[in-house]
């Protein structure tokens, strides 16, 4: 059964259409405060919608002002950001809880819960309290608890955010495997582009409650449509109108590209593609810039420029420059990626 939802909430100014096919993992990616968690809570039934609808197959879960199915009657599984395991129960009881709540006898519930703990590799910790687990283990128990009831819709709220970097890498790979095996619909929200790219079949980017871009992770990463996404995937983005290989940028500059296009377009390029110099270079795509900030990374220096662009410089290139003086930037037309803006 597929999910078809239009989530409208005055709070967070949310207006989010969302469809998920069985077996598909849709990642809602957005900055903090974009309304991601609100959307997830609405899907779970923890917040009633103010407008729109939520349907799973033929079942209407929420359609204001009439229909509302309370959370305990929706076949959902939810993994919360801080897991919210029941601290007074053993790990096994946590996983068995959903089955017991749905009226499955204790013995059956426990043996099924144990099978799920085996699936996530924690059968040996079944008798322990959640407080005895590491962050990564607690995350896996939360996942097993959500999956144990065999929900139609799996909801994950920043499932990796509470983990340290090393654990995160391993847990992310495991989570991806479990999500691949899960036959129902999955909605995962995150603000982390790496999680989004690694776990999602499709991305829905929301900013201030509105969808700004959707598509396959690879497509979104290569063709960012907004400054937020461009920044997330580490690209510079400028907009303009193309006429063949001539682009008139929104600020009036004229650039050359190697890809012919027409109409409103985005131009994306890597920070490494920008050259900085004290004099205007011969050739196309040069403009005067002001430095707004400098950040030292491992082997490169990121120089923030006006118009929210950034350039990555090697130490030698940096040594030749006086960043306080007047500067010119230029980009090789071959380094520009041109695509239609949406």
């Amino acid at each position: 059964m597929s999910l078809d939802a239009l989530l409208q909430m005055d709070r967070a100014c949310l207006d989010l259409p969302l469809t998920v096919e069985p077996g598909e993992v849709v990642v809602v990616l957005g900055p903090n405060g974009a309304g991601k968690t609100t959307a997830l809570r609405a899907l779970a039934g923890l917040l009633p919608l103010q407008g729109g609808h939520i349907r799973l197959g033929n079942h209407v879960w929420d359609a204001p002002p009439k229909e509302f199915v309370p959370p305990q009657q929706r076949p959902v599984g939810m993994v919360f950001q801080d897991y919210l395991l029941f601290q007074h129960m053993s790990v096994l009881e946590n996983v068995a809880f959903g089955l017991r709540a749905r009226g499955i006898p204790r013995h059956t519930a426990r043996s099924r819960a144990l099978t799920w703990l085996e699936t996530v590799g924690l059968a040996d910790r079944a008798r322990e309290r959640p407080s005895a687990l590491s962050g990564g283990q607690a995350q896996r128990v939360a996942l097993a608890r959500a999956l144990a009831t065999e929900p139609e819709l799996l909801l994950l709220d920043e499932p990796l955010a509470a983990l340290d970097a090393a654990t995160r890498l391993r847990v992310r790979a495991e989570l991806a495997r479990h999500l691949r095996d899960f036959p129902g619909c999955t909605v995962l929200v995150t603000h982390d582009p790496v999680d989004a790219m690694a776990l999602g079949d499709r991305l829905v980017v929301i900013e201030d409650g509105q969808v700004t871009q959707t598509g396959a992770p690879r497509d979104v990463a290569q063709h960012p449509g907004t400054d937020y996404i461009a920044h997330l995937v580490g690209l510079n983005l400028v907009r303009g109108k193309a006429n063949g290989t001539i682009v008139t940028l929104d600020n009036g500059d004229t650039w050359m590209t190697t890809t012919a296009a027409s109409g409103a377009i985005n131009v994306a390029f890597a920070p490494t593609a920008i050259r900085l110099s004290h004099t205007r270079t011969q050739g196309p795509n040069a403009w005067q810039v002001t430095v707004t900030g400098v950040e030292q990374h491992a082997h490169t220096t990121r120089v923030h420029l006006d118009r929210s662009l950034s350039a990555d410089l090697s130490p030698t290139a940096l040594a030749d420059l006086d960043l306080d003086g007047p500067l010119w930037a230029s980009v090789d037309p071959a380094d520009l990626r041109v695509y239609k803006s949406r």
Binding site: A44, G45, L46, P70, P71, Q72, Q73, R74, V76, G77, M78, F80, L84, F86, F97, G98, A101, R102, R145, A146, T149, L155
Partner: peptide
């Protein structure tokens, strides 16, 4: 809320 999503009244 976690309990509710697990089907508990």
């Amino acid at each position: 809320e976690a309990a509710a999503t697990l089907g508990a009244s």
